[in-house]
Design a protein around this nucleic acid. Structure first.
Lengths: 223, 223
DNA sequence: GTCAAGATAATCGTATACAATCTTGAGGTT
DNA sequence: AACCTCAAGATTGTATACGATTATCTTGAC
């Protein structure tokens, strides 16, 4: 059985990633302990893990708060993720074997089906699988882990992406270029295609963000 | 003042990174608590942080052990680090300003001085600064953090590098190419030069490792 | 002699209590 | 009115105790 602290971590992570807790929200140890019917010990343990993952921040004797990412930091993270995923694609183009390639193409077709039927949630889901299979095909387990971690962390910001007009169709076309490059065994093309694919998300998102809060640091008002 | 758990974490991290604790060694909560004159609570907290950093592993009811990295995993980590540092160099070539470039060149000259006088420890130290200034020049704080973290984690393995014959001189020449590319504002050249520079370390090290333990997983004997 | 089942011991996960530290706000002083 | 002082309250960090889980050793049967 999983220990309670880990359950708690997963639960809190989920709640943060789905924006049920918003950036800036305070996570009080005592309240959480009471809320989940446990003592502070496992709560603290869970919080430490989330701090290590960068999801929350801890200000001594002030409280722990859901990290405020800010457009700048967010853009930086997308930039890094683009490079990591590009590296996965490059390696995949170089090292992929038949069965892994087949797996990628299978996910690719699943994306296509979801895109054509306008199933946004389905596309989101299949898209995850698509990317993870490419990461796996790279054959670098450490890289895969790093990329997946960043991916997870950016989850709440990517999800909105797909609601942008025509984004799903565009995303699928980008996937197509990636798959073609991997199939052709062209590492540079695969890397470039993947980098663009991910970088576009970052740009689109910061565009969106910029239009919502033009003043950068100025939104501080909350409770 | 820093809390005791953090002191402990730093202390243990230090002892692991300097190989005073070796891979496979067991870290017993109770012994550590007794040894440092604290209770198990802060010890556990410190251990959790090290687990999150990947330095140690936790097997329930078995104990916590210093991570055994293994040649494969090590090579993977070098591969990723090469890419991250290459990205830093690429960004640096694109975005660097006069003062940051001057800082890089200053570190570069310091490396040169250490190399010529055969001061290996000095070279190691200046080399750290050189790389960090390039990371800083990239202007992506998140990337800088990620790269620095990996760098730290690979520290014990890089240090041996410099004892390889002519490695210092070769390393300096590689630095030279990197600086030239950054100064020229050539992102691709900077990235390529940096990637090679770091990748070589990985290759050299795994060469070394392979010559020491030819049988991969076979060394299990210890106390 | 080997293997399995139970007993034993070690370790872990959690709860609770206490101490130390910081924040906050009221009240007084300049 | 602004600033400083200080006490009250809150929150965190640490210690200790206990129950639960699991590894390991013992014992006995085959």
């Amino acid at each position: 059985m999983e220990k309670r602290a880990d359950q708690l971590r997963d639960r809190l992570e989920e709640e943060i990633l789905t924006s049920r807790y918003r950036p800036g929200d305070r996570l009080d140890e005592q309240s959480l302990a009471a809320q989940f019917g446990v003592s502070r010990t496992p709560v603290r343990e869970a919080l430490f893990q989330l701090v290590a993952a960068g999801l929350i921040e801890h200000r001594p004797h002030r409280g722990t708060f859901v990290s405020e990412v800010g457009p700048r930091h967010l853009m930086e993270m997308f930039e890094v993720m683009a490079e990591l995923e590009a590296m996965c694609a490059r390696l995949a183009a170089r090292r992929v074997d038949a069965s892994r390639l087949a797996a990628i193409e299978e996910s690719h077709r699943a994306c296509e089906a979801a895109a054509e039927s306008g199933d946004m949630d389905g596309y989101y889901y299949e898209n995850e699988a698509f990317h993870d299979r490419i990461r796996a095909a790279g054959g670098n387990a450490f890289l895969r882990e790093q990329a997946a971690q960043l991916h997870k962390r950016l989850k709440p910001y990517r999800r909105l992406q797909l609601r942008v007009r025509n984004r799903v169709a565009a995303s699928f076309r980008e996937h197509d270029a990636i798959v073609a490059a991997i199939r052709a065994g062209d590492p540079d093309a695969a890397a470039a295609a993947m980098r663009d694919h991910v970088a576009i998300q970052g740009e689109r998102f910061t565009d969106l963000l910029a239009s919502l809060e033009p003043h950068g640091e100025s939104r501080r008002a909350r409770d």
